[in-house]
Write a protein that binds this DNA or RNA. Structure first.
Lengths: 231, 231
DNA sequence: AGCACGTTAGGACATATGTCCTTTCGAAAC
DNA sequence: GTTTCGAAAGGACATATGTCCTAACGTGCT
């Protein structure tokens, strides 16, 4: 590892307060890997050899069926772990991962992590916290996806991205880069998403202008979401 | 704790090889709790105080919506943990739990588990393994539920309960106690399940006699399942 | 301007799935 | 044997969602 990389690694570790997790002696095993927008980072079925930390950029985790359908499981921003479950279970990659923006990951080989576990049990606790949280949110969204129609899910999504300060409504745009992606995230077809959006627009819940969607009536949205919200 | 309970607790711990996890000194904090068939064990939103181990019987984990719909997340048989994620995250119970049969759970208070963590780090590793596995299966079934129609899910289910010895097909009955429960498990309405079953029967994939379903053509079933299988 | 391309928007139709209701059926109770 | 009751089976209809296709639109490029 060259000097530049070393410096970068340390600064990321400092930035995210990972000093306790990775003692200085361990960092020699770690790597810094930048990635480009749109790049395929991992493919379902891959056998991982390292645990990755997303420290910059945005990625999406998704499932692809043999028939070509895709379902976005979640988006991730720093600080996020990739490969934690795979490390623990020793199983192949469950979902594919793609870069939504450019970014950076730092990584540590599985082979050295088992040593780290022994010397720093806090690392196991860290993994446990991470995986438990993943399970919690996954379980929550699953129930929602299974039990409510697209309209409710869309309303929940819109609520979750509208940062509502006390009473003041900031009309926000969607965070997904486009409607196709949003459809994959909500778990429906683009066509159907469009249909539901049109209905919401007709009911003055949202407004569509120039391909962007703006929230008009937060209260109606809350009613539609039936108390559900993403994450 | 009386003598009887003590003996019972020890025998369960022995049976499931939990000796290393719970040193003798810790066992005084543990309880044995039998439960009846149909009993509601936990309700979503409860605040848990103990970690439970299912050591006998069968339970189901499910979600209830305010509208009364229910979705079965999974069935569990010994040895299974309940409350692991809640313990780690300190959050209220995510899903309701009901006893399918009578059974027994043993439990340990959260308050003492943090001590156990310090003295026996292997306990954390045990939790991590458990939660990682839960996440893995949850994620798998989620994708399947979102991406495939009921017919595929039903075929997968039937495959997963048909223990197929080399070439020999054991025509098995379903493990869910009835079709209503099966519908909740697959994530559809009873009516629709019935419809799909009828179609499968018409195609000679299964046979329905006296309310029980028998697998007739394993190969066709495999084709229908498209390589998916539960768990 | 004119073209290329990805995104947005929506019509027409097919399919998947849900809701409500009625009938049948078999086991258990009387 | 008759009654009772929950589960099985399915008809009729409504709704949710998917598929295929076409058109409009905006942005960047030539």
């Amino acid at each position: 590892m060259n000097e530049k990389q070393h410096t970068t690694l340390d600064s990321y570790i400092h930035q995210y307060q990972l000093e306790d997790l990775f003692p200085a002696s361990f960092r020699q095993h770690m790597k810094v890997s930048p990635f480009e927008k749109g790049e395929t980072l991992f493919t379902a079925g891959d056998q991982l050899e390292e645990l990755y930390f997303l420290v910059e950029g945005k990625i999406k985790i998704f499932t692809l069926t043999p028939e070509g359908k895709s379902l976005i499981n979640r988006f991730k921003r720093p600080l996020a772990l990739i490969g934690d479950v795979e490390y623990v279970k020793g199983s192949p990659v469950l979902n594919s991962v793609e870069a939504v923006t450019e970014g950076v990951m730092i990584s540590a080989p599985f082979s050295h992590l088992s040593d780290l576990e022994k010397e720093h049990p806090s690392f196991i606790r860290f993994l446990l916290d991470t995986v438990a949280h993943k399970f919690y949110t996954e379980s929550h969204t699953t129930s929602m996806h299974m039990l409510y129609p697209v309209e409710v899910r869309l309303a929940s999504y819109l609520l979750s991205i509208s940062s509502v300060g006390e009473g003041t409504v900031f009309h926000q745009e969607m965070r997904t880069s486009n409607l196709i992606e949003l459809a994959e995230w909500i778990g429906t077809s683009y066509r159907h998403l469009n249909r539901v959006l049109k209905k919401m627009a007709a009911d003055h819940v949202v407004e569509r202008t120039n391909g962007s969607v703006t929230i008009k009536d937060l209260e109606k949205l809350r009613t539609l979401a039936k108390g559900n919200i993403y994450e």
